[in-house]
Each structure stands twice: as structure tokens, then as C-alpha cells.
């Protein structure tokens, strides 16, 4: 009679304990990584290698996705704006939605899938083959040698990728709007320039993407560093990276939009 209730209570208790333990490990990881960050700047070689892995190899998906998002925005925006006879504002619709929201957010989501999952899997495998423990044996701090360069690379990469995404998107919208649907080229650009503000829109977009970069890399590195060192553990950690990063980025984006753009 009481057994199912007790079982349920025990499961809830276990979940809470596990969550608290994870929070504690996350905090310890954070405290360990923070002092390792400045030290790793002394070895830029490691950061450049990671920039290649995290940044250059993500270019393809970011550029293609940006172009197509811009083109879709161009098509959809045009069909709505044309009903109100203001198709000239197409540029503003495309540019503002890309620079403010879609650029940083979609870049972060793609980054989580392309680079974040790779970082987690790499660190997880390093842990399960005891490479990290081996480093510690040789008095090499894996946080400084392995984790911190990846952190810097991710944080540096994100705003650059987001800017490329937005720019390619605006050009994609231009190709569709001006090339295909016959919006005037001059008014496409002049409307954009008169409506998009440097401080309000561009800078806020960059701030967003830097913050998303920190969040995405941090989650990816923590999940890899913290994973259960088995094949299954690594696969679970990789999944958690993508899911948690996506949720964190989307939630954070709402909060930041509410704070930044007083609508």
C-alpha cells in the first residue's frame, strides 16, 4: 500500500541529490577554470589550434545556414510586406531580425551541434581513456592545458560566426528581394541604414553572441569534463550538451531581449 508512494518519494529524493551534486561539481569546475584562463593566454599556439577546430570547421554550416535563413526571410517578409504596399522595408525586416535575434541565437544553436558536441565528446574520451588523469600525474593541469584554450577559442569564435551569419543573411535577403522579387536595390540598403542603429542593434547583438559563446562552451566543456567515463557516459554527455546549450541559449535570449530592447 505505502510502497509505491515511498518509491516515488525515494526517486524524487535521488533526483534532487543528483541535481545538487551536479551543481556542486559545476561550481568546482568553474572555480578551477577561472584561474586557469589567464595562464592559458600565454600559450596562444594551443588557442589557435582550437580556433581551427571550433571556428574554421564551423564556417561551412554557419555560412550556408545564414544564406538560407536570409533568403527565407526575404521570401516570407516580401509576401507579407507586399500586401501592405511597403515592400521597400524588406531590408529592415531581414537585417533587424538577423542582427538582433536570429544571428546570435541560430549561430549558438548550430555551434552547440557542430562544435559543442565535438568538444564534449573529445574531453569525454580523453577522460575515459585516462589522458586527463595521465596529465595530472605529470603535474600538467588539464584545466590549463586542455580546457582553457578550448574555452577561449569558443568565446572568440562565437561573435565572429554570428557576424558572418548576419552578414551572409542580409546578402541572402538581398539576393532574393532585389534579385528575384524586384525590390529597389537603393531602398533596400537605405532603409536598412536608416533603421538599424549601431549601438542599439549591432553592439547588443555582439554582446548577445559573446554571452552565448561563454554559455555554450562552458556547458560543452563541463559536460565533457564531468561525464561518466564509459562509452555510454560520453554519448549521454554529448546529448546533454546539445540539449542544455539549446535550452540555456533560448532562455537567456528571451531575458536579454527583454532587458536590451525596450519594445
Amino acid at each position: 500500500m505505502m510502497r509505491p508512494v515511498l518509491n516515488l518519494l525515494a526517486r524524487i529524493g535521488q533526483g534532487v541529490m543528483e541535481a545538487l551534486a551536479r551543481l556542486g561539481r559545476w561550481f568546482v569546475f568553474m572555480l578551477g577554470l577561472l584561474p586557469a584562463l589567464p595562464a592559458s593566454l600565454l600559450r596562444p599556439r594551443l588557442i589557435v589550434d582550437q580556433l581551427y577546430q571550433v571556428g574554421v570547421l564551423s564556417l561551412q554550416i554557419i555560412l550556408v545556414a545564414g544564406a538560407f535563413v536570409g533568403m527565407v526571410l526575404g521570401l516570407q517578409g516580401y509576401s507579407i510586406l507586399a500586401t501592405y504596399g511597403s515592400a521597400e522595408s524588406l531590408g529592415v525586416v531581414v537585417a533587424l531580425s538577423l542582427v538582433r535575434e536570429l544571428g546570435p541565437v541560430l549561430t549558438a544553436l548550430l555551434f552547440a551541434g557542430r562544435a559543442g558536441s565535438a568538444l564534449t565528446a573529445e574531453l569525454g574520451l580523453m577522460k575515459s581513456t585516462e589522458q586527463l588523469a595521465g596529465m595530472e600525474m605529470m603535474a600538467v593541469d588539464p584545466l590549463k592545458r586542455v580546457v582553457a584554450p578550448r574555452f577561449w577559442a569558443g568565446v572568440l569564435t562565437m561573435p565572429l560566426l554570428a557576424a558572418l551569419f548576419s552578414l551572409v543573411g542580409v546578402l541572402g535577403g538581398y539576393a532574393i528581394g532585389v534579385g528575384l522579387l524586384g525590390v529597389d536595390s537603393g531602398s533596400y540598403w537605405s532603409q536598412i541604414q536608416s533603421q538599424v542603429d549601431f549601438r542599439e542593434d549591432i553592439i547588443n547583438g555582439v554582446i548577445k553572441s559573446v554571452l552565448f559563446g561563454v554559455v555554450a562552451v562552458w556547458i560543452a566543456l563541463f559536460e565533457g569534463y564531468d561525464c561518466v567515463p564509459t562509452a555510454e557516459g560520453v554519448s549521454r554527455a554529448t546529448t546533454r550538451t546539445v540539449v542544455n546549450t539549446s535550452l540555456a541559449v533560448l532562455g537567456l535570449d528571451f531575458v536579454m531581449t527583454a532587458l536590451m530592447f525596450n519594445v
Binding site: V48, D49, L51, Y52, G55, V56, L59, A95, V99, L156, P159, L160, L161, A163, L164, S166, L167, V170, W189, I192, Q193, S194, Q195, V196, D197, F198, D201, I202, V206
Partner: peptide, 26 residues
């Protein structure tokens, strides 16, 4: 790899400048 990383960073910075100069009202 260095060339690629250099190209990537240069492209990214170029995109930021273009956004600032050509897309916004700077």
C-alpha cells in the same frame, strides 16, 4: 591551419565592420 585561422578571424572581423558601416547607421 594558421592560414585558415587567420582567414577566419579576418573574415569575421570584416563581417563585423561591414555590419557596422554598411548595415547600421554608424
Amino acid at each position: 591551419r594558421d592560414i585558415w585561422v587567420g582567414l577566419f578571424v579576418a573574415l569575421g572581423l570584416l563581417a563585423l565592420t561591414l555590419l557596422a558601416l554598411h548595415v547600421s547607421n554608424l
